[in-house]
Design a protein around this nucleic acid. Structure first.
Ligand SMILES: [Zn+2]
Ligand SMILES: [Zn+2]
Ligand SMILES: [Zn+2]
Ligand SMILES: [Zn+2]
Lengths: 121, 121
DNA sequence: ATGGAAATGAAAATCATTTTCATTTGTGCT
DNA sequence: AGCACAAATGAAAATGATTTTCATTTCCAT
């Protein structure tokens, strides 16, 4: 079922942090690798479906992807340089569960991100 | 400074919950009101700037707006019917502040949402 | 080698949102 | 009323990421 091109995953690894489909595509171009934008999109989507990469959406609407560990975590994102730090959810894990139960929700997940300016910015 | 067309706000009121710019536009069309899509966009944006409406982004990337009280809050969203309930942030507020300070971030904000299936779905 | 399935990618299509810009509307002044 | 000037409007074009189409290429099992 793996529709993902391994070179895409490899490039995302090299990218080190978050990268959009367009960025991955250009990285591969600059590296002299021949690939189509379509395949990059398909691969990233597949990786996301398989929970191998993390998907976030930037304010400008562009989706960004990043390899992520299997542990549940959240992000502290810099509005300036775009750097993202993985952080533990701590107290909000219980908060989410409590809130959901309180309103009779099941099959519950949550998202939480913190935005700010890092020291460098 | 109000660049917002009052009829747009009025329509969002009638909509009752979240609505996208496109949806507001079509609601107004169906109601026989003459307005341009551009004005709808401009008005919603202005309302968002003025913190009069709440902006969320759907998974498909479309921005949705809703009238909201002035109090800071979060959302419990049903993946089935799209219903959203306003909930207090509780533990999150301190979590965000602590995490940000710990990493030297300033000018900090946060977003947090809980997704699940409501009783009806 | 042969046939069919899966993968690929160039080009076109989609679609929300933004930008442009010419026109209309509103407001104050004479 | 007549005029000037700013703000608001909206049609049409531009933007830009993502998706779809579809013809071609690559894989793989027989
Ligand atoms: Zn930074
Ligand atoms: Zn969490
Ligand atoms: Zn529901
Ligand atoms: Zn909060």
């Amino acid at each position: 079922m793996s529709r993902s091109n391994p070179r895409v995953l490899n490039t995302l690894e090299r990218a080190g942090g978050f990268a959009s489909a367009q960025e991955v595509y250009h990285l591969m171009q600059r590296a002299g690798e021949s690939i189509g934008l379509t395949t990059v999109y398909r691969s990233l989507q597949s990786l996301a479906d398989d929970k191998i990469v993390d998907v976030l959406r930037r304010d400008d609407g562009e989706s960004i992807y990043r390899l992520c560990g299997d542990a549940h975590h959240h992000h502290l994102v810099c509005k300036g340089c775009g750097d993202a730090i993985e952080i533990p959810g701590g107290a909000i894990e219980k908060w989410a569960k409590t809130m959901a139960e309180e309103h009779g929700f099941r099959d519950v997940g949550h998202s939480a991100e913190i935005y700010g300016l890092c020291r460098k910015c």
